[in-house]
């Protein structure tokens, strides 16, 4: 068996894509296809009404979901006020509100 040299990164610090649950990211891509268009420019986070008042980074949260990391999103998503300002600044036309609503819905289903 070949040895993987230098792959013992601290589990708490790394994204283990192989082990992560990918159902959430697949459903996000399905229910909000435009979410795939994100190029991570951060315009949404800069504009964000919630992010103006508290620690809330919508760009990072959706990126984490896309890597199968859902814990932080579950903890943070409820901060969004759904005001739609991000929708107006996104240069890629990501339907940010739809993306957030989809994530909200999954999290709720997950709770139950």
């Amino acid at each position: 068996m070949p040895t993987l040299w230098g792959y013992s990164i601290s589990a708490a610090r790394s994204i283990d894509y192989d082990k992560n649950d990918q159902s959430f990211l697949r459903r996000l891509a399905h229910s909000c296809p435009s979410s795939k268009l994100c190029i991570g420019c951060g315009g949404c986070t800069a504009a964000c009404s919630a992010g103006n008042l508290t620690e809330f980074n919508i760009r990072q949260l959706q990126m984490l979901v896309k890597r199968g990391e859902t814990r932080e999103t579950a903890e943070q998503l409820h901060k969004c006020m759904l005001c739609g300002k991000c929708l107006l600044v996104c240069p890629r036309g990501v339907d940010t509100r739809k993306m957030i609503l989809s994530m909200k819905r999954f999290l709720r289903e997950h709770d139950q």
């Binding site: 008042l53 759904l82 005001c83």
Partner: peptide, 22 residues
Amino acid sequence: EGGVCCGRPMLLAGNREEAAVM
């Protein structure tokens, strides 16, 4: 200096309770 959203966008999405908090 940036404010709290009026809540209508949240309400229009169906989430009345959160809108009420805002």
